[in-house]
Each structure stands twice: as structure tokens, then as C-alpha cells.
Nucleic acid binder design. Structure first.
Length: 276
DNA sequence: ATGGTGGTGCGACCA
């Protein structure tokens, strides 16, 4: 089973590029982030015509995630638990950043968690150095805590699952061309990395680092200043596998070539092949 | 270099 994750930066601008890549890569499941669309405006028929079932969790203008699957999907849920009162201005967590579904494979079922973790910038700190309550950085760290809580729940079942998507997190200095430039950024600050480490330390496997040890391997390059031409990138899109999923890991790769095409997303797809 | 580019959607806001 081939499962891909791709932050497309707007379905309206990227529909044709997404179709082209799906035809080339032929994933069984595609996990999308930043669809930037309400559910009603997502061009689902473009992908249904290619044999995909389409499940969206969108909102107006920003964020939004989706699942495309050629294999049967069951038990689709939208939203990450624990968001009550987590929105800005004390509102509920209305940011559409998380979707889960069970994919029925030839040998086994796999729970797929698709996520778009908050960016977290700007980093607003109080005089004691802790994040300002209700700030974007505070929201990011608390979102990490909720994701970790969900991972604990799923791990207890001892079944195959994965959490994949745009984590907006650079795990290690080697995951950035210029790590010093990201030192104080919400994507690389020590508190952010500690949250990521807490999550992976539950027993989740970073699929890319198991299958690909090549240096300067990134999933995002800024649109500005010719970042891609200089390979001035960061690795922030990740596949984290449960032990039962990692047992079936065959391959994990990044389709960086899509970044060189016309009108690219600033992210590129990452995918895993699981014998499942 | 405190957004230089790009998306959404039509005024800002987000990354």
C-alpha cells in the first residue's frame, strides 16, 4: 500500500498539478494539507474520476485537510480531540487541521491520521520565557500535546497506524540547510522539538530516516530568493509509524521533482510503501 | 533582510 502526504498550498491553484502528480506517483492514499477550501468547493469529481474516494475537512481561506483513497475507507473522523476552547479569542477549535480514517488493505487495516500542525509563528513569550497564553506559539505547543494524547490512545490498541502530514517541525539541525537561521523560529525552537521528541518517544518511527539517510533531504523550500535552486530547504513533512505499521515498512521517499515544475506548492510529496 | 513570494478572495491574513 502506497500512502503519500502532500501540502498542496491551495486546491484551487494546485488541482491540475495534483492530478498530474497522482497519475505519476499512483498512491493508494493521498493525505492533503492546506486545501484552503470549504468542503463544498473542493473539486472532488476531478479525483473521483481517477478512482479516488474523497473525504475533506475544510474551512474558508486557510488550513483544511483531505484524504483521497483508492482503497475502502471506514470510520472517518474530523478534528483532533481536545480542542474545546482552544480557538483564538476563546472560541472552539475551528481550525480544520486533522482527519482520521481506516484504510482496508489486502492483508490488514491501517488507521491513517492526516494532520496539519500549526505553524506557531510569531513566538510571543512572557517575561519568564514561557509562551503567552492564547498566542500562536502556545496554540502550537498545546496542539502537539493533543496529538501526543491521541497517539497514546491509538498505541494502546497495538494495531497498525500512522500519523502523517505537515508537522511544521524541523526535528534536527541536519533537517535544515541553514539551521542557525531557524534557531528562534517556532519550527525549530527547542520547546517545539521537545514536543516532537515526546511524541516520537512513545515508540513512533520516522519512516524517512529509516529508509533514507541521504544528506540535505528536505520537503519545503520558501518561494522567495530562489530557495529551491540553492536547496535551501527544511524537512517538516513527516510519516510517523506505529510499531505495528513500521514492521511493514518497505520504502519512504520524497518526490522533490514536483518543486521544479510550473506553479509548484512550496512543499513536495512524501510517501511510504507498506506491505499491508 | 522582520515577507523579497504566493494563496485565498477582495481586505487582510497566513505561511
Amino acid at each position: 500500500m502506497k500512502i503519500a502526504s502532500f501540502n498542496i498550498n491551495g486546491i484551487k491553484a494546485r488541482a491540475e498539478a495534483l492530478k498530474d502528480w497522482l497519475k505519476e506517483a499512483e498512491p493508494d492514499v493521498a493525505i492533503l494539507q492546506e486545501i484552503k477550501s470549504i468542503d463544498e468547493n473542493f473539486p472532488r469529481e476531478l479525483f473521483e474520476d481517477m478512482g479516488y474516494t474523497v473525504e475533506t475537512h475544510g474551512q474558508k481561506s486557510f488550513n483544511g485537510v483531505a484524504l483521497l483513497s483508492k482503497l475502502p475507507l471506514e470510520d472517518v473522523t474530523r478534528g483532533l480531540p481536545g480542542g474545546e476552547g482552544m480557538g483564538r479569542e476563546g472560541a472552539d477549535d475551528i481550525e480544520a487541521r486533522y482527519i482520521e480514517a481506516t484504510v482496508i488493505g489486502a492483508k490488514d487495516s491501517l488507521r491513517i491520521c492526516g494532520l496539519y500542525l500549526p505553524n506557531g509563528n510569531p513566538v510571543d513569550l512572557q517575561s519568564d520565557g514561557t509562551p503567552v497564553p492564547g498566542s500562536k506559539y502556545d496554540f502550537k505547543l498545546k496542539w502537539f500535546d493533543r496529538l501526543t494524547a491521541r497517539a497514546k490512545e491509538l498505541l494502546a490498541a497495538e494495531e497498525p497506524f500512522l500519523m502523517a502530514g505537515d508537522y511544521n517541525l524541523i526535528p534536527q539541525p541536519e533537517d535544515a540547510k541553514r539551521p542557525e537561521a531557524w534557531k528562534d523560529d517556532a519550527l525549530f525552537r527547542l520547546e517545539s522539538r521537545a514536543k516532537y521528541r515526546t511524541l516520537t518517544s512513545l515508540g513512533l518511527t520516522d519512516a524517512l530516516r529509516v529508509r533514507n539517510t541521504a544528506p540535505e533531504t528536505y520537503t519545503f523550500w520558501d518561494y522567495q530568493a530562489g530557495a529551491f535552486d540553492r536547496n535551501d530547504g527544511i524537512r517538516i513533512d513527516h510519516f510517523l509509524l506505529s510499531p505495528q505499521a513500521a514492521d511493514h515498512l518497505v520504502d519512504c521517499q520524497i518526490d522533490a521533482y514536483t518543486r521544479a515544475k510550473a506553479k509548484p506548492s512550496d512543499h513536495v510529496p512524501i510517501w511510504v510503501e507498506l506491505d499491508i
